[in-house]
Design a protein around this nucleic acid. Structure first.
Lengths: 228, 228
DNA sequence: GCTTTTTATGAATCTGACTCAATATAAATG
DNA sequence: CATTTATATTGAGTCAGATTCATAAAAAGC
């Protein structure tokens, strides 16, 4: 009994230390960026010796990876929560877009180097997994829309997903640069894109059906044009 | 005369040296990435002493900024060239998308840290100007489409632009990770987005025989699908 | 030619990531 | 509880590489 208690205390101590280092790193990286973040400062913030950091993380880069992974995990939780508050698929999508964009702009400086990590990572890099979990949130919502018959997959899912996240991520940069611009304009527009492009005509009335036909015709014309 | 010749030779020498350093830096950064690029290696490649680099560029970061600026300038030239080969606005847009995506995927590792520079830069950072020049290419094409009456601005231009570049940039990451995926799927889809969303549908038809028309449309779409 | 100004050099400095021999702490054993 | 063994922590020392600066070379001015 006593033995178990001691052991768990030991493990807990180490876990607490690891968490302290990770928290310290997140703060340091956020405040200074990757280059200017000092391992010594992280160690001091976490109240451990410099060498101790290296017992938990192989090097600075790996520490960053862990911080980034944690960031995406927390983001995923938030996205799931924000999304569950709605039942309508389009409302869910809008909520996800709003949440995502808001978070990206809020933690902009931080997200900056999470992106870089993604870039330098290879396909099977473990640092990609949290991001996979995050994009899955979108996939599930869209799939639900298809199941419910209000969306149709007019393009490969990954293409649609990339349009969604790509637009939001890029927009977060411009919104960061131009504080006066309205984030709602982006998500609102994105919602319209989804209605116009993937909205299923079966549920529509005859008046919007006509518009859909015109769009489909235009789309076909474009395909023919491009193919030449 | 002799004096002028000497002066110009001198300036030319310095300009050549500056170019040599910039070229050396571009190669070194491309091959090793920012972190692993060594200033000493850049100096050696440019055949100057290490200290000389610092006469032309304040530090490593500023050297990177210059390389990035050059990159976007060259990209802008290429985009203009690719775009001028078409007269139809939609074809121009498609060409720009294809060019942009192709270049991003090709120089993916390099683009990686150009993005970071953008992120860390402020609104009036000079390193942003080349990117401004680049996005202007899109703006001009879209504006032309509006003038010609085939596009309508259903959202603020910056929102539309961000959707365009955001989708492409994000997709370039996906394409880089999944080599098997087809870039055409992205640009094709993007072209459809533009038709569906911003395409001007002035030419309305009477609502008679709606179902017959829809049947024929489905048939045509199916044929197109098969041809892929 | 000689003086002044500009440009180039690379050894020396400085910073910060990372290592490792020494030390402390906890668990196991008797 | 004392002792041995295993594990965790420390921080001074190493090392790589960016940046500086006293000195030298080259060019311009006179």
């Amino acid at each position: 009994m006593a033995k178990a208690a001691v052991q768990s205390t030991r493990r807990e101590k180490m876990e607490a230390k690891e968490r302290a280092i990770l928290d310290a790193a997140r703060i340091e990286f956020s405040e200074r960026g990757f280059e200017n973040a000092k391992m010594s400062a992280i160690a001091k913030r976490a109240e451990v010796a410099e060498g101790t950091v290296y017992l938990y993380y192989r090097n600075k880069k790996e520490l960053l990876d862990s911080v980034v992974a944690q960031f995406w995990q927390i983001l995923t939780q938030g996205a799931r929560k924000a999304t569950l508050e709605h039942t309508d698929t389009l409302a869910k999508l809008k909520a996800l877009a709003d949440f995502h964009l808001f978070e990206l702009v809020k933690d902009f400086d931080f997200v900056g180097f999470t992106v870089r990590t993604r870039e330098t990572g290879t396909l099977d890099s473990p640092s990609l997994n949290p991001i996979r979990g995050y994009v899955a949130v979108f996939d599930e919502i869209f799939q639900q829309g298809v199941d419910r018959g209000i969306f149709q997959e007019t393009a490969p899912l990954w293409v649609i997903r990339d349009l969604f996240y790509g637009t939001l991520e890029y927009s977060s940069r411009t919104l960061h640069l131009h504080k006066t611009r309205d984030a709602q304009a982006v998500t609102q527009h994105l919602a319209e894109v989804f209605i116009a492009l993937y909205g299923n005509t079966k549920t529509a009335n005859s008046a919007t059906g006509l518009e859909r036909i015109e769009e489909r015709l235009a789309s076909i014309e474009a395909k023919l044009e491009v193919r030449k």
